[in-house]
């Protein structure tokens, strides 16, 4: 996490991995349990990290992780490669499940964690392989280059599932300002991640 981000000729996700993901989803749609197991083995660590970050609880995150892969089993046939990458589809599914769960929990007991407002934690997980560590570094580097207020807004939105109005209330900021900063942050992030993100994730 030191030094400026230097663009390299690497992708956040190599093409062979994407092709393999598409094939796995097709096999899962054909009721191939082994394919589901393969997809689980490939993404359980990154998805579980996301779920723990959103839910703030291993227990809840494990519940949702299980739900996510059952959904993958049921909905693999709906996946359309023309409308996005398998990885993006999987992450979007996991995140929206987690946010749904978060809202259910919040309705009973509004617990607002401050974690999302903090700076991105350092990559310290021993289980991450080198490839994932590299991706993590690329994204973390890009986020570091964003103005603080933009980065905070994006992380609040992404990991806490807050809408623009909720964020405005939370921060006591005008809605218009929140909208503008979020949009600016997303545009800057896309620019920093470059074509690699657009092609891959």
């Amino acid at each position: 996490m030191s030094g400026p981000y230097i663009p390299r000729d690497t992708d956040l996700q190599p093409e062979p991995a994407q092709t393999a993901d598409v094939n796995l989803l097709h096999a899962i749609a054909q009721r191939d349990e082994a394919a589901l197991a393969s997809l689980y083995d490939r993404y359980r660590v990154i998805l579980f990290g996301l779920l723990v970050r959103i839910l703030g609880s291993r227990e809840e995150a494990e519940d949702v992780l299980q739900e996510v892969f059952i959904q993958v089993w049921r909905r693999a046939g709906d996946f359309d490669e023309q409308r996005g990458k398998p990885f993006t589809w999987l992450v979007t599914l996991a995140r929206s499940r987690a946010i749904d769960r978060l809202r259910q929990l919040s309705a009973r007991e509004r617990v607002v964690t401050a974690s999302a407002l903090e700076s991105p934690p350092e990559a310290s997980d021993a289980v991450a392989d080198a490839f994932r560590a590299e991706q993590k570094e690329i994204v973390a580097d890009a986020l570091q280059q964003l103005p603080d207020e933009q980065r905070q807004l994006l992380l609040l939105a992404y990991f806490e599932g807050l809408t623009q109005s909720e964020i405005a209330r939370r921060l006591g900021a005008p809605l218009g300002t929140v909208k503008t900063r979020m949009r600016s942050g997303m545009m800057k992030l896309r620019e920093l991640l470059g074509d690699r993100v657009l092609r891959s994730v």
Binding site: L47, F48, V52, A61, G84, D125, V127, K136, L155
Partner: peptide, 29 residues
């Protein structure tokens, strides 16, 4: 834009879930 938003997943620490989750998923399906 979904790709850009999805890249934020790497801002979270990767974590290993309990091994029984895999078995529970496969048993459920």
């Amino acid at each position: 834009w979904q790709g850009t938003a999805g890249s934020l997943v790497f801002a979270a620490d990767a974590l290993e879930p309990s091994p029984e989750i895999r078995a529970r998923v496969l048993e459920a399906v």
